[in-house]
Design a protein around this nucleic acid. Structure first.
Lengths: 111, 111
DNA sequence: AGTCGTTATATTTACAAAGATATAACGCTT
DNA sequence: AAGCGTTATATCTTTGTAAATATAACGACT
């Protein structure tokens, strides 16, 4: 039996959480579906929770990560801003690097 | 305003959590106090919770991390095994390295 | 004008995790 | 043998978080 090492990372702004794994997958789902409600459904998350998460992210980010519209064709929608996309990319890159780093660390240790 | 990046790591054995930051600080408190109940008190944690945590760790670790005695001088007590000490050391080293690594990663990114 | 699917928000309900409480067993010490 | 402080464990209560429910506003389209 071997030990494995796991991690969760998150980005903070001003002492408050900005982005973690859950918010990242929500943002990605919004990018794919073009809608906050569809994104929530695809993640088996309530609309309210999804909305609250996005609201918190927009409040802390230097620039909003999504834009929304109410009414009109399809009832409205949401889409990622360029800044949102770059945040996703940065987060995922760092996260993968972190996993690799930790795997190396645990391999160098014998317990 | 700058973004900061934070992390939590934990060690798993057999798909179940073995050690995280909370359990590590409990183990350290046991090493310092020589008693599970004193350790719990020093961390403002109920005895029951502390005992459950330690029980879970001992169940998953390759070798017990503490030894306990009931009755006798002082009513009994608990102390770290050598294996427990080495687990603490390994965890804390890897954790610090992880923090440094992530700080470097976020510094290389502009968001 | 009415329908539709969406965003936005408040309020209530349910549940799981945490905490509090109680009790037994143990073996030095006095 | 009685007391003490500890480990070990079960049961009940609380509480904080998540989920469910309800409602309003909006604008394109038919």
């Amino acid at each position: 039996m071997r030990y494995t090492i796991k991690s969760r990372i998150w980005i903070e702004a001003d002492g408050h959480i900005l982005l973690g794994e859950g918010r990242i997958s929500l943002l990605k789902a919004i990018g794919q579906t073009g809608s906050l409600s569809k994104a929530a459904k695809s993640l088996n998350m309530s609309y309210k929770k999804a909305w609250s998460l996005i609201d918190a992210v927009n409040a802390r980010a230097k620039t909003p990560v999504i834009t929304t519209s109410i009414g009109g064709k399809g009832g409205g929608g949401a889409e990622l801003t360029d800044y949102g996309k770059s945040l996703i990319n940065a987060f995922e890159t760092i996260n993968k690097n972190c996993w690799k780093f930790l795997d190396k660390q645990i391999a160098e240790t014998q317990l």
